[in-house]
Each structure stands twice: as C-alpha cells, then as structure tokens.
C-alpha cells in the first residue's frame, strides 16, 4: 500500500468518525479493507482506495471507515461492569426513579452483545429492584452493518461461547443449524438507532445509564472530547457512565467523577453544564 493511501485512510477515519488509525500499520488497513474490496468487486484494495478518492463516493467512504472501526466484542465482556449494573446501579436507580423508566444506552453497541447482555440481566430480574421499575434499553452504532447484525440477533457458534454463560444460552437462544438466534422477547427489549458519536452529539438524551466501553480508546484526542461532551449532554445529572478498562473521562475535565473502587464507572457531575445543547 502506498504511504499516501494509508495516510488518506487515516485522515478519512479521523474526519468522519474520530477513529485513530496509525498509517504505518498498512497490514491492518489492508486486511480490514480487503473485505470491502472483495464485497464491492474491486480487484484490489488499491483499486478500492483510488476509486473512493477520485469519485468522492460517500457510501463507499463510509464502508471504508466502518470496516476500519469494526471491533471484536463478546457477551458480558469483562463481567465486572455487568455485575455492578445488576447489583448496584440498577437497584439504586430504581429507588430514585420510582415509576419513571430507567433509560439505558449502549453507545457504540457493535453487533449487540453488550446491550443484549444488559437485556438478559433485566429480563432475568434482580434482587433488590423495586417491582415497579421500568427499564428501557437503547443501542446505537455508527455502522449500519453492525446494527443490522445486532438487530437480527443471530450469532455464530464462537460468538455465543465468548462470555455468555451456558445457562443464558439455553434460556435465551434457539439453535438454527450452525447459528444461534436470540429469542424475540430479548430482541424486542432494545430500540436501535444509527448514530455517530462525534457528529450527532445532541441526537440522544435523557439517559440514566450509558455504556460506552472500548470506544474512546480508539479515538483521536479531539474526538474523545467531543464524544464525552455528547455523553455528558445525554446523561441525566444523576446518571452513570460505564467506560472500558483503561479508558477515562480525562479529555473532558469536570464533567464526570470517578466512582471509588469501581474502575471504569463514572458519575455525572451534577454541576457540570455541557457545552453542547440540543438543537
């Protein structure tokens, strides 16, 4: 791959979705884009890039950045945040909200494993949750392809074996030949929306709990700040934000406070006034 092509790809990813791509890692770019090149009937990745650069083809440009942004996920990834959600945050929020629904958002939900893990927790019930608690679940991703997969609720033999306890598989999935299909009652618990966290900052709001894990770590510094501004706007003043391991809210000082002894969990600073406002 020519250096100017890999640099162009890195710049495109940064501009459209705030994704940090190292132009030196040409093998990574090549392997991600070769899937798109095959799918779109290009002879090579170079041909694909040349076509997108010359034709200013928005659809294809998005296909490129989506391919570069695609990440691995698993059900109940890292386990601890889900236990914290189930055992601490949800019961506490239930006490405060009473009859009003608790709104939960998986921002950057990918193929849906995270939001469906939360849906299974909600469906399976939990000790300590007030009986009148209503919970609404939302999933968003910038990738249409990922959202389509998420909405289908269809996963491979390998995907359902990563992080999903076998009792949850038996309870919530049906086997369909080599694939596993999530049962409709769980799928129907989630509402979906395609959303770019850096350009649609005010498109979502009124959430009590946001999961945005393993998203910030792949972003440029500027995109990280924009995303956190959007999340601060979207989160209710007494809401909670779950980030991934090793991620923090440092890029936006004053908006969130780390919760002691709960790595990755942040409480919205109630005094903080987001710079972004709903249009």
């Amino acid at each position: 791959m020519k250096p100017e092509d890999s640099e162009w790809i890195a710049a495109l990813c940064s501009r459209l979705i705030g994704l940090k791509v190292d132009p030196e890692k040409t093998y990574l770019i090549d392997s991600r884009l070769s899937v798109v090149a095959r799918r779109e009937s290009f002879q090579s990745v170079e041909d694909l890039i040349t076509s997108v650069r010359n034709d200013s083809d928005d659809r294809m440009a998005w296909a490129l950045v989506e391919a570069m942004a695609a990440g691995e996920s698993s059900f109940f990834r890292d386990r601890t945040p889900f236990a914290c959600f189930r055992d601490e945050i949800l019961p506490a929020m239930g006490q405060v909200r009473g009859n009003r629904p608790i709104r939960v958002w998986s921002a950057g939900c990918g193929a849906g494993q995270e939001i469906y893990s939360l849906a299974m927790i909600v469906n399976d019930g939990l000790a300590g949750r007030p009986p009148e608690t209503q919970i609404q679940l939302f999933g968003s991703d910038l990738s249409n392809r990922a959202m389509e997969k998420a909405q289908s609720g269809i996963y491979t033999h390998f995907e359902v074996q990563r992080g999903l306890p076998i009792r949850s598989l038996v309870r919530h999935f049906q086997r369909a030949e080599d694939m596993w299909v999530l049962n409709a009652p769980i799928r129907q618990m989630v509402r979906w929306r395609q959303l770019n966290l850096i350009s649609d900052q005010t498109a979502a709001g009124g959430f009590d709990i946001i999961f945005c894990r393993n998203v910030l770590c792949n972003m440029t510094d500027a995109a990280r700040k924009k995303t956190l501004e959007g999340l601060a706007h979207a989160l209710s003043p007494d809401g909670f934000l779950f980030l991934g391991e090793g991620e923090s809210t440092r890029a936006l000082e004053g908006a969130f406070n780390a919760v002691a002894d709960r790595p990755g969990l942040y409480a919205r600073n109630q005094a903080f006034r987001p710079a972004v406002q709903a249009a």
Binding site: S74, R79, F158, Q161, R162, G163, P165, I166
Partner: peptide, 8 residues
C-alpha cells in the same frame, strides 16, 4: 472459549 468458560 476455554478460558472464558473456566472463568464462568
């Protein structure tokens, strides 16, 4: 998969 199942 083995590692995750043993954690479970």
């Amino acid at each position: 998969i083995i590692a995750m199942k043993f954690v479970e």
